[in-house]
């Protein structure tokens, strides 16, 4: 992302944000409420067109492409809320995740299903259940699994721990770690600073629509200012 200014109705919320994620790495964006995290995410996945600046995906400029077109290029997205089809079964969620995005050269549905279920063994037994009846943590896994079905190169997660109990959030970040280990590039926006940075290679701290700090995750975690501000002085 290069010099991105974005916002709603002409009011910029992001004031010239630049950062990049290297292939195969995990980048976590943290910051207080209202710092522009979700605006940043929407701009990244193509739900919001920036006022100025560019969004680059590999070598290609995707600034003007909408979400479906970016999805077709291998950018998968798990929105913060309402990220599953509640009235459909888990299997159908995975099917829908696959069939409208996967290119013809992609591995078959069956192969991808096996691969994804290996990453999320917890949902294998739930394939026939209606997704809306699952627990919060399981729903997040279904949402991530559906996004991973077409074998994307980048997975964007918007506040994956939102609404989860601390215990479930920890389990979820273990799963996210598994996904990262499988070679997928991850862009995560997360309110839970400690959990988020703990799972990341790099961290970006966003404050008031500007980048306050961009560094390897361990350095961000160790930064005294950040510790005081967002980790409650711990």
């Amino acid at each position: 992302m290069r010099d991105v200014v974005a916002g709603y109705g002409g009011h910029p919320i992001l004031h010239g944000v630049s950062f990049s994620v290297r292939a195969g790495e995990t980048l976590v964006v943290v910051g207080p409420n209202g710092s522009g995290k979700s605006t940043l995410m929407k701009t990244a996945v193509g739900l919001l067109r920036p006022i100025s600046g560019q969004v680059l995906f590999g070598e290609a400029n995707v600034t003007t492409l909408g979400a479906p077109a970016r999805a077709a290029r291998g950018l998968a997205n798990v929105p913060q809320e309402a990220n599953i089809f509640r009235n459909m079964t888990v299997l159908e969620n995975l099917q829908v995740g696959y069939e409208f995005v996967a290119s013809h050269s992609a591995p078959s549905f069956g192969k991808r299903l096996d691969a994804v279920l290996d990453l999320f063994p917890e949902i294998r037994a739930k394939l026939r259940s209606t997704a809306g009846y699952l627990s919060g943590g399981q729903r997040q896994m279904v949402a991530m699994a559906a996004a991973l079905m077409p074998e994307p190169s980048v997975l964007a997660l918007d506040e994956p721990s939102a609404g989860l109990s601390p215990r479930n959030a920890e389990i979820l970040f273990e799963v996210i770690g598994r996904v990262a280990a499988s070679g997928v590039t991850l862009l995560i926006v997360e309110q839970n600073t400690r959990l988020g940075l703990g799972a990341a290679d790099h961290g970006v701290v966003l404050v008031g629509g500007r980048i306050r700090l961009a560094a390897p995750a361990a350095e961000v975690l160790a930064d005294p200012d950040i510790r005081r501000l967002y980790l409650g002085g711990a």
């Binding site: 929105p79 309402a82 599953i84 089809f85 509640r86 829908v96 995740g97």
Partner: peptide
């Protein structure tokens, strides 16, 4: 079920 997510899913 979820028009926004459907768009995200292509």
């Amino acid at each position: 079920d979820n028009p926004d997510l459907a768009a995200v899913r292509g």
